[in-house]
Amino acid sequence: MTFARRSGLPGVNTENPIALTVTGRVSRAVVADLCVELERALADPGGAAPAPGAAVDCDVGGVTRPDLTLVEAVARLALVARRSGRTLRLRRVPPELRSLLDLVGLADVVALEEGPEEPERRVPDPR
């Protein structure tokens, strides 16, 4: 897990200075640690205060074997972000995690970054 402060161009309003990167396999032992680190980052964002309702970016593209433990981590991180008046936005969401979030109803709770358009699948004409 990595927290990074975003830096941008001078004079550009940075809406979201907090980013979280989750990589590898997420075990139940690290879920609480992820929440504590996010709470710390939200308590001291550094630089200008983010706008009310700003999102916390969470890059989950590097996770391996997404499972229900990762879904629990996402739910708890979303709760931590919501308690601070922000939302959790997932980036680079693997298809397996997207399916699990849909299954448990969390896809409507967290913001999922839209990926590139999938190529149109054509069904051959049965004639």
Rank of each mutant, 00 (worst) to 15 (best):
M1F: 10
F3T: 15
F3M: 14
R5D: 12
R5Q: 13
G8E: 06
L9T: 12
L9E: 07
G11C: 10
V12P: 13
N13R: 15
T14Y: 05
T14C: 10
E15A: 11
T21P: 01
T21C: 09
V22I: 15
T23L: 08
G24D: 11
G24Y: 09
R28H: 10
V30E: 12
V30D: 07
V31E: 03
V31G: 04
A32C: 01
L34Q: 09
L34C: 09
L34H: 12
V36L: 08
L38A: 05
R40T: 10
G46N: 02
G47Y: 11
G47L: 10
A48H: 02
A48N: 05
A48S: 08
P52A: 05
P52W: 01
A54I: 10
A55R: 12
A55W: 02
V56K: 06
V56N: 07
D57Y: 08
D57E: 09
D57Q: 00
C58A: 11
C58Q: 04
G62Y: 01
T64R: 12
R65K: 05
P66N: 00
P66H: 03
D67Y: 01
T69R: 08
L70R: 03
E72D: 12
A73L: 01
V74N: 03
A75F: 06
R76D: 11
L77Y: 06
R82P: 00
R82K: 06
R83P: 03
R83E: 13
S84R: 14
T87R: 15
T87D: 08
L88R: 01
R89I: 00
L90V: 00
L90Q: 02
R92V: 01
P94R: 05
P95Y: 14
E96L: 13
L97P: 03
L97E: 01
S99I: 13
S99L: 14
L100D: 04
L100V: 06
L101C: 00
D102C: 12
L103Q: 15
L103F: 15
G105R: 15
G105P: 12
L106A: 07
L106I: 11
A107N: 14
V110G: 02
E113M: 01
E118Y: 04
E120G: 11
R127K: 09
